[in-house]
Write a protein that binds this DNA or RNA. Structure first.
Length: 476
RNA sequence: UCUUCCUUAGCUCAGUUGGUUAGAGCAUCUGACUGUUAAUCAGAGGGUCCCCCGUUCAAGUCGGGGAGGGAGAGCCA
């Protein structure tokens, strides 16, 4: 008999039909009631076994075991669920030794412990919800751009470009570690390497995406990126996924509109399609908040927070305005900032948090940063001091989007590259876009895991990617 | 990388000024019960107190070093 997904059975009120269900036992009560989960949704189906069933079989129905059940969907005789499956036969697909299985429903293992058994944590309610939401977000990313006529461009994972300046890189090489070929001056001779040059894992697909935008007008990338920085925080991963749209003919304002629409769309999509998961995650967050002292608790629940973001425009301010707000704040006057504020500084976490969480209490888009703290490709404004950059800051997680209008003027761009010691000859392919039919264009990068963090209300980025890669950790 | 906190049973945690045989809840096992919903009830087993060195008659407890983890910070998405 063909398997029926548990989600489908629970969704419907229909009864008195035969089904086959397969899944993993979450709990087995009274030698009679199995809570069975197949990952298709949050909920378990209750499988009821007739009293007096074979005892050897009953012994093997343990938490974590996988089983196949043939039976009839009936209106539940007990309270707590609408329907249940009255079993005609139960087959053990895979035994699970309870003495060794680390997940027991009634235990409340910490997120840190579950991280150590990341290969099994999908079987918990929390991680089931998180990764169903993650999936929905990924799907919504593609749907958003596809519906708007963007071309999904696959930018390379292995790159030779080292001029992106986005961070430390992981080297890709097949040269022997112990005795690599060397040049006369002692440096490693990468001409002998697999690609005949020094290569790394990509830190961003942006530059390549720009090449695509110069033909398709609208492109986006969505893929893994790698940063070899020794960042030990709840917001950084060495391997993470990033979405980078790039649009020809867009200026910085179009770029902001796109980013804002995009974020709102993603949240709305999940709110519509993962209601149950979000409600569970909201409850989890609420329980966690109860552990905190009153003054540290957030004012809004998870669902309310997401609704708020969907229903309210993001605040848009310039960097200069942001600095003024900070300088005029009581917080600053009482000298409560650890880092001083003045025009030209890179905004520190505490400054961003003040703007987003205290002052505006909503996502904020900051534009017009000083050129000296931003990347070479950002379009220089006429004031000679700032660039058409934009960052979107979100409550709780800080920078979720970084983007800009790109400088389409060959002379300005090469001048800036020279100032910043970026080799223009190696970047000929990038500069060709400015030589051959250049157009104004803009784009941004959105850190996918940070988006998942925001939507799920989780606190640590390691809990929203299946197998986190961080300094000193590449298990599984 | 810096600051700070933590590491005791499978999990979550107590453990008093250093002092007999290191505890609890849950999980697990055995039995009872049987329309349960974190089932319930009775009983049992389960420990390299993270590692090393030191102080002491005596160290889970004090000191030094190391490892791992959390939370902040820097870097960034």
């Amino acid at each position: 008999m063909k398997r029926t997904k548990i989600k489908g059975i629970l969704k419907s009120d229909a009864t008195d039909y035969k089904v086959n269900v397969k899944g993993w036992v979450r709990s087995f009560r009274n030698n009679q009631f199995i809570a069975l989960n197949d990952g298709s949704c949050m909920g378990n189906i209750q499988v009821v076994i007739e009293l007096g069933a074979d005892e050897a079989l009953l012994k093997r129905i343990t938490t974590g075991a996988s089983i196949s059940v043939d039976g009839t969907v009936i209106a539940s005789l007990g309270k707590g669920q609408k329907v249940e499956v009255k079993a005609d036969s139960v087959t053990i697909l895979g035994d699970c030794d309870t003495e060794q299985y680390p997940l027991q429903l009634k235990n409340k293992p910490s997120l840190e412990y579950l991280r150590e058994i990341a290969h099994l944590r999908f079987r918990t309610n929390t991680f089931g919800a998180i990764f169903r939401v993650r999936h929905s977000l990924a799907y919504a990313v593609h749907k958003f751009y596809n519906d708007r006529g963007f071309v999904y461009l696959h930018t390379p994972i292995v790159t030779a470009s080292d001029a992106e300046g986005a961070g430390e890189m992981f080297r890709v090489s097949t040269l022997p570690f112990d005795n690599p070929p060397r040049n006369e001056d002692g440096t490693i001779d990468f001409k002998e390497d697999f690609f005949g040059r020094c290569t790394n894992l990509t830190v961003s697909g942006q530059l390549e995406a720009e090449l695509g935008a110069m033909a398709f007008s609208e492109v986006y990338t969505f893929g893994p990126t790698f940063r070899a920085e020794n960042s030990n925080t709840a917001r950084h991963l060495a391997e993470f996924w990033m979405i980078e749209p790039e649009v020809a003919f867009n200026d910085i304002h179009d770029n902001m509109d796109l980013a804002e629409d995009f974020i709102r769309y993603l949240i709305a999509y999940v709110m519509e399609h993962n209601k149950e998961d979000l409600e569970f995650l909201a409850q989890r967050l609420a329980d966690e908040e109860k552990q905190k002292p009153m003054n540290e608790r957030s004012e809004l629940g998870l669902v309310e927070k997401l609704e708020f973001v969907v229903n309210n425009k993001f605040e848009r301010i310039t960097y200069t305005e942001a600095i003024d707000i900070l300088l005029n704040s009581a917080h600053y006057k009482k000298k409560k900032f650890q880092y001083d504020v003045s025009w030209g500084i890179d905004l520190q976490s505490e400054h961003e948090r003040y703007l987003v969480e205290k002052h505006f209490k909503k996502p904020v888009i900051v534009t017009g940063y000083p050129k000296d703290i931003k990347a070479f490709y950002m379009r220089q404004n006429d004031d000679g001091k700032t660039v058409a950059a934009m960052d979107i800051l979100a409550p709780g997680i800080g920078e979720i989007v970084g983007g800009s209008q790109r400088d389409e003027r060959l002379d300005k761009l090469t001048q800036r590259m020279n100032e910043m010691h970026i080799p223009t000859d190696e970047m000929y392919w990038y500069l060709d876009t400015r030589r051959f039919g250049t157009v104004p264009h803009a784009g941004f990068g959105l850190g996918f895991e940070r988006m998942v963090l925001f939507v799920t209300g989780m606190g640590n980025i390691r809990d929203v990617i299946p197998f986190p890669r961080t300094p000193k950790n590449a298990e599984f």
